[in-house]
């Protein structure tokens, strides 16, 4: 086995735009789930409405920048439609209705009668040319340490890391003060916060909206990276992977989901690399472990890692047990 190549595979995954997009999405989900306690299983729907908002606008002849605006508006609309009737519900019903909403959106996007607009099961392609035209990195290859990336990918990476930093900073700014304090109150005991004269309905709508907008940005980055949107890229699996990331990193801290996303992709890529090498070894010696098994085994291992993490680090890999739930607190 080649330890170096396993490590490189891991590094490559962490430095990919996909990982950055997952980290951004996890920031949004953590706001909803970690800070405010809203179990939104329809998070993929927010990402899909962002990605499709952009892709459809461009395919209809609108520009990339108009597309971005539409992406945010579409996701805001989706969040409101989902949140307004459901956030009053108990946590389990909220979870059920949100997952249903996201699945409905996905099925509509892939339906044959929506095909003229959405491309149906084939999705839409090549809508980010305008973005890549601004690429200042002219050379075809750049070295990030040991990792070689294309200039095109580097451009997207720089932009998405900048967006990630801005979102994280923005979240930190609003969460450290009284607004963030309210969220912890809503999460732990909503009717108590109501008895303090606070409109918890409004607070939860705000959280669903902001989290959804962050999800839309993550969806746009995923779509721009692949120059392709496909309804099945936004299946509920992605929501569950994001929950895994938030739980791995640690709930209700501003920056831990970013670390969670990095660890998640490191585990995915490294186990994948190990299993692929294993499959090659086995092919040479009788073929008891094929590439097919490798793909499936990868997620089994990720599941085991997640279970172990929850058992041994219940507050997440990056939060010590016994640490207070609310860390953000300002000196005034």
């Amino acid at each position: 086995m080649d330890g170096m190549s396993i490590l490189l595979d891991g590094m490559r995954a962490v430095l990919a735009p996909t990982c950055v997009a997952y980290a951004i999405a996890a920031l949004g989900l953590n706001l909803q789930f970690g800070f405010a306690g809203l179990i939104n299983l329809g998070f993929a729907g927010s990402m899909a409405s962002g990605a499709y908002g952009l892709a459809i606008t461009v395919s209809l002849g609108g520009g990339f920048w108009l597309g971005l605006l539409v992406a945010l508006m579409a996701s805001g609309l989706f969040s409101l439609i989902v949140a307004l009737p459901t956030v009053r519900l108990r946590a389990d019903y909220l979870a059920m209705t949100t997952i249903a909403a996201a699945e409905i959106l996905r099925l509509v996007l892939r339906s044959s009668w929506a095909k003229p607009l959405t491309g149906g099961v084939y999705g839409l392609q090549r809508f980010a040319d305008e973005f890549y035209a601004l690429n200042p990195f002219g050379a075809s290859q750049y070295a990030l340490g040991f990792i070689i990336v294309s200039g095109r990918t580097l451009w997207l990476l720089v932009v998405s890391w900048a967006i990630l930093a801005l979102i994280a900073l923005g979240l930190w700014l609003i969460l450290r003060g009284p607004w963030g304090r309210q969220l912890a109150g809503v999460r732990e005991d909503e009717s108590l916060v109501t008895s303090f004269g606070k409109n918890t309905f409004l607070i939860k709508i705000q959280v669903m909206l902001i989290g959804g907008l962050i999800g839309a940005i993550a969806g746009v980055i995923l779509a721009v990276d692949q120059q392709n949107v496909n309804p099945d890229n936004f299946a509920s699996t992605i929501t569950f992977l994001l929950f895994a990331i938030v739980i791995l990193g640690g709930r209700a801290r501003v920056f831990t989901p970013i670390l969670g996303a990095a660890v998640f992709w490191l585990i995915i890529a490294m186990t994948d690399s190990v299993l692929r090498q294993l499959a090659e070894v086995s092919a040479a010696s009788g073929g008891w472990f094929g590439q097919g098994q490798a793909g499936a085994t990868r997620y089994i291992l990720v599941g085991i890692v997640l279970i172990l993490a929850i058992i041994f680090r219940p507050n997440g890999l990056f939060i010590n047990s016994g640490a207070p739930l609310r860390k953000v607190s300002v000196k005034v």
């Binding site: 923005g170 700014l173 609003i174 450290r176 003060g177 009284p178 607004w179 963030g180 304090r181 309210q182 606070k198 705000q206 902001i210 300002v330």
Partner: peptide
């Protein structure tokens, strides 16, 4: 004031 989303970010 800090509980209003529009003002929350400005300490």
């Amino acid at each position: 004031k800090g509980e209003q989303l529009s003002l929350a970010g400005i300490k």
